[in-house]
Design a binder for these strands. Structure first.
Length: 583
DNA sequence: CCCAGCACGC
DNA sequence: GACGTACGTGCTGGGT
């Protein structure tokens, strides 16, 4: 075909797909668009009948799969997933304009309409102008004639190409070019494959849990109405506040929010448990309700009819630190802390006949802090592989390591976490339930223990003031315009970000490198087990039993050598028949 | 349709 | 005297 012959001579091509759904896993192709020169684009209409559609799409397989041709796209992970459903795997180097903009300035927006307007001064055709405003009457791409879709589709491919030409130079200037080419672009197919593969759920167990939890919740509900002397909506914080502090008046001076409503959160209610038996019933009701509505009753509805699995979206351009986020459903906040929560985690299972494998970095954020600050005491502790919280406690309170009490260790652990988040005296006191004075002493003891950590914190803030941004091990920047604010609260927030962003962001960089290398080794070594989830410092796999040892070796090895810190980078592994057992 | 309050994870 | 540890997503209620 002449058109294909023409396209395939190009070194670089911008592409876009028009489909019937925003969800890549369900989307059917309506059309393909291509652009190689600014101001020039091509549209190929795809017929609705599946066999005919596949025939038409397959014509372009040699183009999409050509390793030598760079593929430019705006959120190209979407097109990758749609085409995978048609037996096509996009190959070659990627240039994703959305992610290019994200690594240059993570806190801004990255959608195409915004980029076109700010970077090109061009107003694009908005999707609503084509298919009508959002709502149940919104038309489908398929219901339009090819000529109607053509202009829109060609514009997308053309604008994406123009954006690339602008962003290419901006990337070089930003210093994030290598981060973009070596980490973010190779990560795209890795995330796409994880999303496509999906995760299996034990729906029967979930149903049974739903039944039990609903029964328990109804019990709490009845108790609450009796104790309150009336029925009300327990899911309404406002109504709960009015009952507790208005009607029952269980405390003299109830705390209020800035909108004047009573505060009824977990922390407040925990402290008031002894005041009235209704309080613990409300806490228990809330716990049940949360688990039921967010997980137990919601997850089964998201099982894909075709695949029988749930397919999350990993958003690669969402956070200001470089972490991924997960949505629809969010699989990065599945409960693990409480026994009730664990019942949910138990329902995440591997594929039939497979094992669940979970590997997570041990103390990665503190290890990054040790590396960045070069604090000799912290480095020594990690090199000797001693429990870091125990070491911290021993040094703060001048104890022998074996004499450290559980309470001291817990406090030291809180202090270690506080350091990563940009500690304040008040924050630590609140969290530990101690006085500001005592918190101050712990922090002083902490900085005496790890003097270079304090130096690092001071230097990070100073640097941020001077440069206006901070950056990670892989030069991922975060701008902090508020760092010189005259408002102490606003400035304090920026200062805490100056500490936290390089640490959290470097963690994100490192695990992304590990994911890319793991996937590459799986391919090279013909591993059929699948990486299915990432939860910030943790990777999860569905593993074929025969590949058990191989997978564990590859995963731990690649996680641990993803980046050479001046302390060991350690990952731990767990196996089981579900996520809970493996974790 | 949007915000507030709350709660789950790291 | 107020403000207060980072980063997310999603549910419900309650106002428009």
């Amino acid at each position: 075909m002449l058109f294909l012959t023409f396209l395939i001579t190009k070194r670089s091509i911008s592409l876009d797909t028009e489909t019937t759904s925003l969800s890549a896993i369900d989307a059917e192709l309506v059309g393909l668009s291509f652009a190689c020169e600014e101001g020039e684009a091509f549209y190929v209409s795809i017929p609705p009948e599946r066999n005919e559609a596949e025939k038409r799409v397959k014509i372009f397989k040699p183009l999409y799969e050509n390793e030598e041709i760079e593929k430019i796209g705006q959120n190209i992970k979407y097109d990758y997933e749609v085409l995978r459903n048609y037996g096509i795997t996009i190959r070659g180097e990627f240039f994703d304009t959305m992610i290019a903009h994200y690594v240059i300035q993570p806190e801004l927006r990255h959608n195409m309409d915004y980029l076109a307007e700010t970077l090109l001064g061009y107003k694009t055709i908005h999707i609503d102008e084509l298919i009508g405003p959002k709502g149940k009457n919104q038309k489908n791409m398929r219901s339009l004639s090819p000529t109607e879709v053509c202009d829109y589709a060609c514009e997308d491919a053309d604008i994406t190409l123009r954006l690339k030409n602008v962003l290419k130079d901006k990337l070089k200037k930003s210093g994030a070019d290598e981060l973009f080419r070596k980490i973010e672009m190779p990560l795209i197919p890795v995330l796409a494959e994880m999303e496509i593969n999906g995760v299996c759920l034990d729906t029967e167990a979930l149903n049974e849990t739903s039944r039990i939890f609903n029964e328990r919740m109804n019990g709490y509900e009845q108790n609450i109405y009796e104790l309150a002397g009336e029925s009300f909506n327990i899911s309404s914080p406002r109504q709960v506040g009015n009952i507790l502090f208005g009607k029952l008046q269980i405390v003299d001076k109830p705390k209020k929010t800035r909108t004047g409503q009573y505060v009824t959160n977990e922390e407040v209610l925990q402290s008031l448990k002894a005041k009235h038996p209704i309080v613990e019933n409300i806490l228990a009701y809330r716990g049940m309700k949360k688990l039921l509505s967010t997980y137990i009753d919601a997850l089964p509805k998201l099982i894909n009819k075709r695949t029988g699995r749930i397919h999350t979206s990993f958003n690669q351009a969402a956070t200001s630190t470089g972490r991924l986020s997960s949505s629809e459903p969010n699989l990065q906040n599945i409960p693990v802390r409480t026994d009730d929560g664990k019942e949910i985690r138990k329902c995440f299972i591997p594929e039939k006949g497979c094992l669940f494998f979970s590997a997570d970095y041990s103390q990665i954020e503190l290890r990054i802090m040790a590396h960045l600050s070069e604090d000799p005491n912290m480095i020594e502790a990690f090199r000797n592989n001693i429990d870091i919280h125990k070491v911290t406690a021993a040094k703060i309170w001048h104890e022998n390591i074996d004499d450290v009490t559980e309470t001291q260790r817990k406090k030291a652990k809180q202090a270690n976490f506080g350091i990563i988040y940009g500690i304040t005296t008040f924050g630590l006191a609140q969290r530990m339930g101690i006085s500001n004075l005592e918190a101050r002493k712990i922090i002083d003891g902490y900085f005496n223990t790890y003097p270079k950590v304090r130096e690092f914190i001071d230097k990070s803030i100073k640097d941020a003031r001077k440069k206006g941004y901070v950056e990670t091990l892989f030069n991922r920047k975060r701008y902090l315009p508020d760092i010189n604010s005259h408002n102490a609260t606003v400035r304090g927030f920026a200062e805490r970000n100056a500490i936290n962003a390089p640490i959290q962001g470097s963690e994100a960089d490192i695990i992304k490198v590990a994911m890319i290398n793991i996937q590459q080794r799986f391919e090279r070594e013909n591993i059929r087990s699948k990486m299915i989830l990432q939860v910030h410092d943790e990777l999860n796999f569905s593993v074929i039993p025969e590949e058990k040892n191989l997978v564990e070796n590859i995963v731990l090895e690649e996680m641990q050598r993803a980046y050479e810190l001046n302390v060991p980078l350690v990952a731990d592994a767990g196996w089981g028949n579900n996520w809970l057992e493996a974790h």
